[in-house]
Structure formats: C-alpha cells, structure tokens
Design a protein around this nucleic acid. Structure first.
Length: 337
DNA sequence: AATATAGGCAACCGCCACAGC
DNA sequence: GGCTGTGGCGGTTGCCTATAT
C-alpha cells in the first residue's frame, strides 16, 4: 500500500481515465440502472484507496455495502472488501513467496487441496488470492511443462523428489545467510536446518526463483551431477527451441538425482513423461534398498505423512527428507493452531 | 525497433452458507 | 419456511509487463 500511495495519485488517476478498461466499464454501466451507472469497476485509484483506508481506520470494517456508500466509494461492498483484504490491510505481506512459504503451500495443498483461504490462514500476511495465484502460475506451470496434472502421481513424485529438496536447500541458504549477518529469513519462522548432508546446497540456476525446472544444457542431458558437497537436481526437458518430435519426446525421461555428498550414495529416480502410468522406474538407495517406486505409495496422504512413514528402508527417509520432516513439524509448531 | 507471446497479478463473477426479519 | 442482505470462497478474466522472436 505504502508503495502504491507514493507513486503519484494524479498520474495514476490520469492513466486510469485513459485506460480502455475504465472507459469500457463506464460505457457498460451506462446501460444499466442509475445505481449501476455510478458503480466503478476495474483498478482502484489512489484516491479510492485512501477513502477506504481512512474510513476503515475511523469506523472499522464490516457491513461492506453500507461502508462503500458511507465512505463515498462508487464501488460494490464486495469490491471494497476484496480490496481491503487482498491489498490495503496493514498486515498484508507483499513480495515474492519465500521458499519456506512455498514449502508450506505444497504441504498444506497436499493436505487440503484448493482450500486457499484455509491455507492462507497458516501463512501470515498472505492472502488466499496470492496463494491461489502462486499455485496457478507457478505450480501448474511446472505441471504443464511435465505434461501432467498437478494432482497426478507423476507430479507428486516430482514435487517430493525435486521441488521439496530444492526448497530445503534454499531455506538452508537463507538461514545461513541470516546467521552470517545477512537479512533474516522472513516469516513464517524457519527452523535452522543444521542436520543435513546438504550443507551449502547450491542451486543449478541461481536465477531460477525456487523453480523445480532447470533448462540448462546439463539439465537437458539429464542424469547425475556430482560436484563435491553440492546437490544437483535436474530433469531433462525439451527446450522450447528444440521442437522435439513425438518420437524424441518419448525418450524425454524425467530424471532426478540426489547425490549424498561424500558418501556418494545415490538416489536416482526417473519417470517417463511419455508414459504417465509408469510412475517410477528408479532404484531407491542403491541396490541394497531394493525398493522400487512402484512399491512405494508416495501418492497418498500429505508430504509430511509420506516422509514420516517412509522410514522402512535403511536409508529412508533420506537425510534431506528428514530435514523436510523436521521443517514441517517446526512449521506446525509455529503456525498451526 | 517492432511485434508476438507468455507470465504475473489484481479484480471480478458466480455460487454458497448463514443470519436476521 | 421464505426472502433478503451479507460475507466468504474458489474459479476465471483481463490488463500490464517482461521476454522472445
């Protein structure tokens, strides 16, 4: 809000007056009743924001229709409520969704589905609209890139074995940066992730804001990258310019590799993008584990439940998954009622 | 430099539940 | 019990901007 307020009310009003949306709205409204003709739609102006904020500061919120009239706003009560809740409320957090928040969203969505408002209750300052937009623009984008549904086993597999580990790396990095005098990690609070072999995790693409997908040449080749202490995750993805043929696409396997640093213990999964029903073909924990992904039900329950019950093999849960579980437990402790 | 395309996000819409009359 | 107003929620739309061609 503060930023919006500072960007020049007159300029914005001028822009609005010139905007097609504004003129279209007024033209449309002119055909309706007199009341409807008075109602404004489209983007809010700084003046309107000020009217709403000042009125709520003086009289409180609620009874939105009468509030809109009393405040002198030519808006519906619904519109006022939405503007207040999603934008003007003082405790609304703006800016990028942090890795911690992404992790929490993934977990809570696996638990509750599209219950955005319920999920938002556990992300202080975040609105249901913001979380919904995040899910639709980021999460579903990756699902589309993988050519699968967000609710499919395939995608859940990717989330568990690619996305969540990367988020954990990022959380670690943020925590480390905070501990070393950098900016402290933003709320919600994050447990210090000290017990992991993934210390100093490095992302393959630093510019990739928490995204699962990497499209580097290395990633395109797929497979395992062993760079000392670092973890690398990737899956092969046809670059947009490649214009792969269907035959080539068939060989476009989804791969992820986790290399446990010095121990050189590999957890290598692959799932064919072209065969959605063949959910996994990897070996878990090397030959000794002997448990294939088909045997493991990773597709029911929440992520935390899955990880909590995955400890039947010697190396399950993997160190990084243990950290995930600890993080989720910590989140629940901090933010769950 | 101009145009096309994709992504992000604010806002709107339709539906539902609930309370008060 | 029916009607109306209100609030809440999830889905969708459309605009603006960034990026690609």
């Amino acid at each position: 809000m503060e930023m919006e307020m500072g960007m020049g009310a007159l300029d914005e009003l001028e822009v609005l007056a010139m905007s097609p949306g504004g003129s279209a709205a007024s033209a449309t409204a002119a055909a309706g009743s007199e009341d409807e003709a008075d109602l404004r739609r489209g983007p809010w102006t700084v003046e309107e924001d000020l009217l709403l904020v000042n009125y709520i500061a003086a009289h409180g919120e609620g009874r939105w229709n009468s509030l809109a009239r009393s405040a002198g706003l030519k808006r519906t009560g619904k519109s006022c409520r939405l503007r207040w809740l999603n934008y003007l409320r003082p405790d609304v957090r703006r800016g990028n969704i942090t890795a911690s928040e992404q992790l929490l969203i993934l977990e809570l969505h696996s638990r509750w589905g599209n219950r955005w408002s319920k999920i938002a209750q556990h992300l202080p300052g975040r609105t249901d609209n913001e979380i919904k937009n995040y899910w639709r623009t980021r999460v579903q984008k990756h699902a589309r890139q993988l050519r699968c549904d967000v609710n499919s086993r395939h995608f859940r597999h990717v989330v568990r074995h690619l996305w969540i580990p990367r988020l954990l790396e990022r959380i670690q990095a943020d925590a480390a940066a905070g501990a070393s005098g950098g900016q402290p990690a933003a709320a919600p609070p994050v447990v210090a992730l000290a017990t992991t072999t993934a210390s100093g995790g490095r992302l393959e693409s630093a510019a990739d804001n928490g995204a699962v997908v990497t499209t580097s040449k290395e990633a395109h080749a797929g497979g395992c990258y062993d760079h000392g202490d670092y973890y690398y995750y990737s899956y092969s993805e046809p670059a947009a310019a490649d214009a792969m043929s269907p035959a080539e696409d068939t060989s476009s396997a989804l791969r992820s590799t986790v290399t446990d640093g010095p121990a050189q213990q590999q957890h290598h999964y692959c799932a064919s993008a072209a065969t959605p029903t063949n959910e996994g073909c990897g070996v878990v924990g090397g030959a000794a584990a002997g448990a294939t992904m088909e045997e493991e039900d990773v597709f029911a329950g929440t992520w935390s439940e899955l990880l909590a019950t995955a400890g039947c093999e010697d190396d399950f849960p993997t160190p990084i998954e243990k950290v995930l579980y600890a993080t989720l437990v910590q989140f629940q402790f901090c933010t769950f009622a």
